[in-house]
């Protein structure tokens, strides 16, 4: 009986001197894989213009019907995005999203990217809808830099579809 007790404790002692596999979330956050598909971001061009042109192809590709795009015409004097069209409303329902990344595939301008942010919890359904303000990166960020994983592999990201805007 005593022997079995010691046998059990042996495992305990052994693990006492090892690195723990758990992390102290939320104080410590485990890094995700480079290709992890987390929360979406709407990127910008280097000149600060929105990449999204409001074409709704992401919404069309979305298997969960989580994306809503309402397009509008750009003001030629003060365009939001290159070309004639931009997304006046861009919303993603994070409760519906299954993070498949089809929107990313469909996007002709590489505007929508599933990034590494995974902390997506809400107190009510309404706040699960991420609006364009929340998804859009700040003016000076997200100009389509090469992701580190591709840099490691020495590869370039696939270029956006060639479109004449």
């Amino acid at each position: 009986m005593f022997g079995s007790l010691l046998k059990g404790l042996q495992t305990t002692w052994r693990y006492m001197f090892r690195q723990p596999v758990t992390v102290q979330y939320p104080d410590v956050k485990r890094p995700v894989r480079e290709r992890f598909k987390g929360r979406h971001e709407l990127k910008r061009f280097a000149n600060g213009m929105e990449r999204c042109i409001g074409c709704s192809l992401c919404a069309a590709a979305c298997p969960a019907d989580a994306i809503l795009v309402v397009p509008a015409a750009n003001d030629p004097q003060d365009p939001v995005s290159p070309g004639e069209r931009y997304a006046a409303t861009y919303e993603i329902n994070m409760l519906r999203c299954i993070f498949c990344g089809y929107c990313e595939d469909a996007c002709p301008t590489n505007a929508i990217v599933l990034e590494h942010q995974y902390e997506l919890s809400f107190y009510d359904r309404r706040s699960s809808i991420y609006t364009k303000d929340m998804l859009l990166v700040p003016q000076d960020k997200g100009h389509g830099e090469v992701p580190p994983i591709l840099e490691q592999l020495g590869r370039q990201p696939s270029p956006p579809a060639r479109i004449d805007l």
């Binding site: 074409c55 004639e84 069209r85 301008t109 579809a161 060639r162 479109i163 004449d164 805007l165």
Partner: peptide, 11 residues
Amino acid sequence: HPLDCPVCDKG
């Protein structure tokens, strides 16, 4: 013909 189908209303 330009490739602007994502913008074009006929798309």
